[in-house]
Design a protein around this nucleic acid. Structure first.
Length: 417
DNA sequence: TCTGGGGTCCTAGGACCC
DNA sequence: TCTGGGGTCCTAGGACCC
């Protein structure tokens, strides 16, 4: 092909996506699962959705985000497995180690996928396709896991091509071939186009990316605003706007930390609901302390039986990382907004607007907070040693913490991180 | 079919300030 | 009198991703 088609500054981006990651990791622990219809995410009669399905289960129409009970109906012979986040984190770290041996610019986009900037690595690893096959084989050798690799001049092209390469494949889109590659694909294949956007586009008669590319930019902008403009660029394979434009591997601090819980059965029991808020506040507080963040905004999430969901937030003058302060705010928001007697399906505690250090406080307040911090640090250490359920901080306690061991009667250490 | 849990980003209105 | 304009912060909700 003519060299003039190749932009002088074209980047070479890899998108590496692990195949059926959670299922594959579970197979490492239980080889009997191999080749079977497997659903990870919970048991067949539980409230919840599919986190991952094996290719065998997918043949029956099972896919991630589908309710477990639906999956059980579509594929009655499937084996249902609870998720093991520690296992996935551990495998993810091995994946990361393999990737960093190929490029210093690696960015994990989630637990099972990553972008690599491979621009200028030809001398070291050979041309893109050769490097990708090398990576693919080393991944299998060192993690026993299959992955797919997409290669392109943008994150977008790399991401879309890795999806086309699945399972267990490698796909390279040569510079200049982007639009041709995208044109026949459904608009839904473009990252950021979900159910809602898809139906808006379908209503305009736009089904394929090629249809999108033929539209005037100005028309897309008029209809969909800023996002429409980005969409026009994407239809040509450009990393148009936002995070996609960022350098690969630029580190990004967390913007929010949250935990939520859906009850197996809806409840209107105020004591149970507030106990859940306490537990969620503890989990959030702990993660704030681990990250050394102080949160200014505390948000409550409340979902009723009929699935109507509200969020209510409050911003503090002094940012906090203390369980009790988080809980106090969450509980206040809850008492103000929960319609007494209404059955609750889900509660969540969300924190955001982080600062590195705490706001100002007077000396007296400082002393009291310090004692709390000491107590919490001790509780965190105890949890590390004996597991999540061994320590609970009771609401309203001052300057001390109580140890509860009835949930761990053997005295043996629980799961260690 | 009866809908998890952890995130990110965007929009839009109102308050408040200059 | 019949009504500025821009900037920022806060809150609520929603689309989307894995």
């Amino acid at each position: 092909m003519a060299a003039s088609h190749i932009p002088a500054l074209a980047r070479t981006i890899f998108h590496v996506d692990m195949d059926a990651f959670f299922v594959s990791v579970e197979e490492l622990y239980d080889p009997a699962l191999k080749g079977k219809a497997v659903v990870v995410g919970g048991q067949r009669d539980e409230r919840g959705v599919v986190s991952a399905a094996s290719y065998e289960a997918r043949k029956f129409g099972v896919h991630s985000a589908m309710p477990l009970r639906t999956a059980a109906k579509l594929c009655p012979h499937a084996i249902f497995v609870n998720g093991h986040p520690e296992r996935y984190r551990e495998s993810s770290e091995k994946v990361y180690a393999v990737l960093t041996s190929f490029s210093p610019q690696v960015e994990m986009a989630s637990i099972d996928e990553a972008y690599l900037d491979m621009t200028g690595t030809t001398r070291l690893h050979g041309p893109p396709l050769k490097a990708a096959h090398l990576l693919h084989d080393r991944m299998k050798a060192q993690t026993q896991l299959n992955c797919s690799v997409g290669i392109g001049t943008s994150r977008l092209i790399a991401k879309v091509s890795s999806a086309q390469a699945k399972p267990n494949g490698v796909l390279w889109i040569a510079p200049g071939e982007e639009a041709k590659f995208l044109a026949p694909l459904d608009v839904r294949e473009i990252p950021g186009v979900g159910k809602v956007m898809e139906s808006h586009l379908h209503a305009l008669g736009i089904k394929k990316v090629g249809d999108l590319a033929r539209l005037e930019e100005s028309e897309l902008e008029d209809r969909f605003g800023k996002w429409g403009l980005a969409l026009a660029g994407k239809s040509r394979g450009e990393d148009a706007g936002g995070w996609f434009d960022a350098e690969v591997g630029a580190d990004t601090d967390a913007k929010s930390i949250s935990h939520e819980h859906t009850y197996n059965e809806d409840t209107a029991d105020a004591n149970q609901l507030e106990a859940t808020l306490m537990r969620l506040s503890e989990m959030v507080g702990r993660r704030l302390r681990e990250a050394n963040f102080h949160a200014r905004t505390i948000q409550l999430k409340l979902r009723y039986k009929d699935f109507t969901t509200i969020t209510r937030a409050h911003s503090l003058v002094d940012p906090t990382q203390l369980d009790t302060e988080i809980f106090e705010q969450a509980r206040t928001l809850f008492r103000k907004n929960w319609k007494k007697g209404m059955q609750v399906r889900l509660l969540g505690v969300h924190t955001a607007s982080f600062t590195e250090c705490a706001g100002q406080m007077d000396l007296l307040e400082g002393g009291r907070q310090q004692r709390w911090k000491d107590a919490l640090a001790a509780a965190d250490r105890l949890r590390d040693k004996f597991g999540e359920s061994s320590v609970k901080l009771a609401a309203g306690m001052r300057g001390s913490f109580r140890e509860r061991t009835h949930e761990n009667p053997t005295g043996l250490p629980g799961k260690k991180k």
